[in-house]
Simulated scan of single mutants.
Amino acid sequence: MNDSALITTGLPIALTIIMFGLGLSLTTDDFRRVSRTPKAVAVALLLQVLVLPAAAFGLVKGFDLAPLLAVGVMLLAASPGGTTANLFSHLFRGDVALNITLTAINSVLAALTIPIITNLAIDHFDAQGDLGLQLGKVVQVIAIVLIPVTVGMAVRRRSADFAARADRPVRIFSIAVLVIVSAGALLGEREHLADYMQQVGLVTGIFCLVSLTVGYGGARLLRLDQRQAIATSMEVGIHNTTVALTIALSVLDNTEVAIPIAVYSVLMYVLATAFGYAITQRHADAEKSLNQTTE
């Protein structure tokens, strides 16, 4: 699968279209909004950029994952949130404006955090071969993550109508690419799939729940309101796995690195839905109890 033109050429092109579509949903005001909710943005970014990679590192060390699988989990931890996080936030009545702001900022930060965290992981776990993100590969990451977003934003500024019309097709395309690539990554390693699932299934499931819990719990601990906490939880807990898969398969050219990401991309939908329902139900029960007490 690593040598396939579909992966080496088609996947970066697909991701470019997806990131362009993300840019079509953003405006410069999404970046300016930071000044209006600085605490919420700072808390979410602190959790995502620092706490989450630390949690992922603790998990892969605790489960003693094979080096390439460990790198895959760290790459997943470094990948940003995305439009799926915005969708889940909307579904569970989070602060979607905060999600959009965080998505905008994370799209920029990811161009730096992904190479840094991934290279540190490759070095620490002594992953085999020339797997590292050297300068040329770092430039490639920046090109496929940052440039299409910027172009998409510029197009939206010139034609908001086109941006609105393109939103639904790009979202459908994004889901289709994720499904195809995840299935391809798993099938490409089908001989070792049972062993990999045993090794990374539990780790990626725990990582997803830890990410969601850290996002929500950290936000509440630092006194953000319920809607902001839900938004933070979804932004921190739901990663843009298409970005991570593209880097694993086409930039690092390694299917084994992609396995934890592919497994996570399946689990996150189930776990995020269950988690979102649990926290909103709990909040509703707490409000109901409070209202009964004050009556």
Rank of each mutant, 00 (worst) to 15 (best):
M1V: 14
P12S: 07
M19V: 15
S25L: 11
D29V: 06
R36T: 13
K39I: 14
V43L: 14
V43M: 11
A56H: 05
A70S: 15
V71F: 09
M74A: 11
L75Y: 05
P80L: 11
T84N: 04
L91P: 00
L91D: 00
L91E: 00
D95W: 02
D95E: 14
D95K: 00
A110M: 13
T113I: 12
I114R: 00
L120W: 08
Q128W: 01
Q134V: 14
G136Q: 13
R165G: 03
R165E: 10
A166N: 10
A166Q: 04
I172Y: 14
S182L: 07
A183P: 04
R190Y: 13
L202P: 02
V203N: 01
S211Q: 10
G215Q: 02
G217A: 15
A219R: 06
A219I: 03
R220K: 15
R220P: 01
L221M: 15
R223M: 13
R223W: 13
G237F: 00
H239Y: 05
V251M: 08
T255C: 05
V257Q: 03
I261D: 00
V266H: 01
L267T: 04
Y269Q: 10
Y269E: 11
L271G: 04
A272N: 00
H283A: 11
A284M: 02
D285S: 07
S289V: 01
N291R: 08
T294W: 09
